[in-house]
Nucleic acid binder design. Structure first.
Length: 370
DNA sequence: TAACCGTGGCC
DNA sequence: TGGCCAAGGTT
């Protein structure tokens, strides 16, 4: 175990920094639903939702989640369809499956009490270094670092750290810095203050240094280099994936939906039948009909084009060509089951979680048939 | 380590 | 308009 050196930390007036940062937070913090109390379950849910997701996006999801699952036990007992529906549109869907798995583990192994030490809490699915530190410091007052993108940006400027924050090992440098800087009497406020400052003042583009409560402690401001920090290498471009999809109906006015596989992209979500179109120059309708038969065991009549949708993911882009089609013949129950297919009415469909691109397909369909 | 894993807002 | 960004974790 090699000790991490941060030479510039010697230049910081630590007590003054703590005082200015914490008092600013205690006066200026936003009122947010997960700040109403320190219930570890609520803190936990909020931290998972907030991973890579903006506060304004999370707020309505969090409030609805607490209505649906007020306690840890309620969530532990919920069925998978319901928890995915609670997450529909938030993205990174493994978060909610890991959260339920972890909550069930807490109930089974810890008598329903979220563990308050780093070793145990870090074993829970979906709880990494950041989330562990956030729960421990916010809910339990433990002096643990909670290093997210905000904290790395803020402290890279305060301490003039030029390490590339896109590299995983860099997080350890900032954890070491937080361990030196953290106010042991106000762990919750201190950690949240670093993030709040990053969100409101010490922003990526043009930081509002003139409004900053810790400007007098900031080495980057002192040197006028705050806009050069943090150092972050750019990620490479994502690739395009051409997709053909179809909203398929039967004589009863029902829609054919398909459950995605239990691992990987959009795992366990429902979707309209589709496939990767590796032969985009093929003549359309008969070719598509054959592909649907090969993949799903159903033979639709593709009647007309519906809409083109671009679905941007972190690392790839779906270029979706959506069509409308009909299935005239009766499909055997075994075929439906084996291929994870289901006929549902419009009302029933509302119980299932869909990716955003497929929600857009249905929206376009409804507008078209009006 | 680097790739995978969503989505919406912003400039 | 396209790249960047947002309270990351897993493999």
């Amino acid at each position: 175990m090699k000790e991490i050196m941060i030479p510039t930390i010697e230049k910081i007036n630590i007590e003054g920094f703590q005082r200015d940062l914490v008092s600013w937070f205690q006066q200026e913090q936003r009122e947010l639903p997960w700040r109403k109390n320190k219930d570890p379950y609520r803190v936990w849910v909020s931290e998972i939702m907030l991973q890579q997701t903006r506060v304004d996006t999370v707020i309505p999801y969090f409030n609805r989640f607490m209505e649906w699952f007020p306690t840890l036990e309620d969530f532990a007992d919920a069925d998978e369809e319901k928890i995915l529906k609670a997450w529909e549109g938030l993205g990174y869907y493994s978060r909610v499956r890991n959260l339920q798995s972890a909550v069930q583990e807490v109930r089974a192994s810890y008598n329903g009490i979220v563990p308050e030490n780093p070793e145990e809490i870090s074993k829970l699915k979906g709880v990494g270094p950041y989330t562990a530190g956030a729960i421990l410091s916010i809910a339990y007052g433990k002096p643990e670092p909670a290093v997210d993108g905000n904290v790395m940006r803020v402290l890279s400027r305060i301490l003039m750290i030029y390490e590339d924050i896109a590299k995983p090992k860099t997080r350890k440098t900032f954890e070491a810095a937080v361990r030196k800087l953290i106010d042991h009497d106000h762990t919750s406020s201190f950690n949240q203050a670093l993030m709040e400052l990053g969100a409101l003042i010490c922003t990526p583009g043009k930081p509002a240094c003139l409004l900053c409560p810790v400007q007098s402690h900031c080495l980057a401001f002192e040197s006028g280099v705050q806009s050069e920090l943090p150092v972050k290498i750019q990620k490479k471009k994502s690739r395009d994936v051409p997709i053909v999809a179809a909203i398929l109906t039967n004589a009863n006015g029902e829609f054919l939906i398909h459950k995605r596989q239990s691992a990987g992209l959009l795992a366990n979500l429902w979707e309209y039948p589709n496939f990767e179109n590796h032969a985009p120059l093929q003549p359309k309708r008969e070719f598509y009909k054959d592909r649907f038969q090969e993949i799903y065991g159903v033979t639709p009549e593709i009647t007309e084009p519906l809409v083109r949708i671009e679905h941007v993911f972190s690392h790839l882009v779906w270029k979706v060509d959506a069509y409308i089609g009909e299935i005239k013949e009766m499909i055997d129950e075994n075929i439906l089951r084996e291929n994870q297919l289901k006929w549902v009415s419009e009302a029933e469909m509302a119980e299932f979680a869909f990716p955003v691109s497929h929600q857009k397909m249905m929206k376009a369909y409804k507008e078209k048939i009006e």
